[in-house]
Design a binder for these strands. Structure first.
Lengths: 293, 293
DNA sequence: AAAATCAATCGATAAAACCGATTTAGAAAT
DNA sequence: ATTTCTAAATCGGTTTTATCGATTGATTTT
């Protein structure tokens, strides 16, 4: 029993004429006759009465017709749903994002949700380590993170933007008046750094290490709003990417040095089919990056 | 897209291993690989991610799987329902019966309904003419009637029983003591005959005509219980098949003459598939006829 | 009565499913 | 790190099945 036979049967049932049904189906009448017969043999019951040259439906044909129609409809619906998926009228994407991308990401998220209201979006904020782990477990469609390590061969890596790492200080602080600050100077300050993952710590270690500087790290906190509160006291300072700053009572000061930029990447698994919704999200991310001052 | 491909896909989805799925399906792994690829090409979306040597399900595969399963289940259910039909666990039969078969038929009906409780039965009592007309319109599975005319070639005819036509008279009547009566004598009696259709009237006309007798027909009534009430007055008499008599206050007296039997037939259309339920009903009718004294 | 028509059947052909062998590359064992 | 095993993809050939046009047989239409 195949869908082909069910389709043939339903058309014959509809028209109660094999010759006409065959014409509509673009097959020969003899093919239709044979396929219906095959189906009847398999079902072990006639679906049509042959009355002279005409056909009428049997009780079995009546009953079976309901099921045949539903079977075909289900298959067609499956096909249609996949089309919708492809046309961004359905589906779901799951994205992992590091905390410091909150502000920029939120804007992109809102724009995407407005443009594609039928696509479900799940967003998970986390540390780079956690996000990577889950990416490798096929949990995410992609993650957005800083990532300077050697790219694993099974990962696809797209550069999103270069983010500046800046000294974040209270607006009321005397430092707030500076346009820039040296790394030497930063090393003298009491720092409360973001403890958001291995790669972040590595970044700091390497940046200061290259200048043989020992930063005065007083705290490591893995919550950016809390960091802002600490900074707002005017005593402690932190170093964050400029994408993180959205508090009116803190400012970011450019740190001199060519290593004070971090690359924000989109990471995904190579073997995983790239949904159209995901492609659209990338496009939106990039266009919003282009517009950045 | 065919049910075969959907079956293959669902097994691969279940086992997440083409080689094992192929083994279970009793096909070669390469066949499975090719058929899945064909399906993916038709759907224009991958259903599986190929991860090294393993496979995982895509979102599209997840979604499509639901519809594929339902499509196959519907087709299978259609098959099962037809089996039930064949096994007398479902279905419907529609029977036309002449009035004089009421008593005998009721017994058969009850026995059948008890034996096959899941089969719906529709019974229509009527005149031979009406029943025949509707039979030709595919309204009935079969009808039970007296029928002596030349059998139309599109009708299938089975003899059920030979029914005796008897004089029906009041038990309190002096005639009731007779074992038999001649047609001459009957012609002298005031008769109230059943007006139940052309063939019944023809039968009487021919029976009396052959003896050059003119019966005294006072009434023609197309309701058997009413005929019994008339007869019970002791004044009028009627002629009915002995299968009709179920009133304790009337008796049937054998009428001398070789023409006083009528053949009760089962009539059906030759081109119409004979349901198993119908076959079973025939069997029951015949067995109850055999048991008749 | 003759012509047209419709489902069934036939024999041949085209298309598709299927197979085993092989390739490619990843996973597991050493 | 190297070797062995293994699983999906691909290839070319074979088998099976759908399909076709012609024909048959019988019914319907003219």
């Amino acid at each position: 029993m195949e869908l082909r036979q069910l389709r043939y049967f339903l058309k014959a049932k509809e028209l109660l004429n094999f010759t006409e049904a065959a014409k509509v189906l673009n097959i020969s009448q003899s093919t239709l006759s044979q396929q219906i017969k095959q189906l009847e043999d398999e079902l072990n019951v006639p679906l049509f009465n042959r009355v002279g040259k005409r056909i009428t439906l049997t009780e079995a044909g009546e009953i079976f017709g309901e099921y045949a129609l539903q079977s075909i409809n289900r298959a067609n619906e499956g096909l249609l749903v996949l089309k919708d998926l492809k046309n961004l009228n359905a589906g779901k994407i799951i994205i992992g994002v590091i905390y410091s991308m909150r502000i920029l990401f939120a804007k992109t998220l809102i724009a995407f949700a407005r443009q594609y209201p039928n696509i479900k979006i799940q967003v998970v904020f986390g540390t780079t380590k956690d996000l990577l782990e889950k990416l490798n477990l096929y949990h995410f469609d992609f993650i957005i993170t800083f990532h300077e390590d050697a790219i694993e061969s099974h990962l696809k890596c797209q550069t999103l933007l270069k983010a500046n790492m800046v000294l974040v200080t209270a607006k009321k602080s005397s430092l707030a008046k500076k346009n820039s600050i040296s790394l030497d100077e930063v090393a003298q300050l009491p720092l409360a750094l973001p403890f958001s993952g291995y790669s972040t710590i590595q970044f700091f270690v390497e940046s200061f290490g290259q200048e043989n500087l020992n930063p005065n790290i007083c705290m490591e906190i893995n919550d950016i709003p809390t960091l802002f509160e600490i900074v707002k006291t005017g005593h402690w300072h932190t170093i964050l990417s400029d994408t993180s700053i959205n508090d009116p009572e803190v400012v970011g000061i450019h740190i001199d040095g060519k290593n004070m930029k971090r690359t924000l990447m989109i990471l995904s698994l190579k073997e995983v089919y790239e949904k159209k919704a995901v492609q659209k999200f990338y496009e939106l991310l990039r266009s919003m990056h282009t517009d950045m001052p």
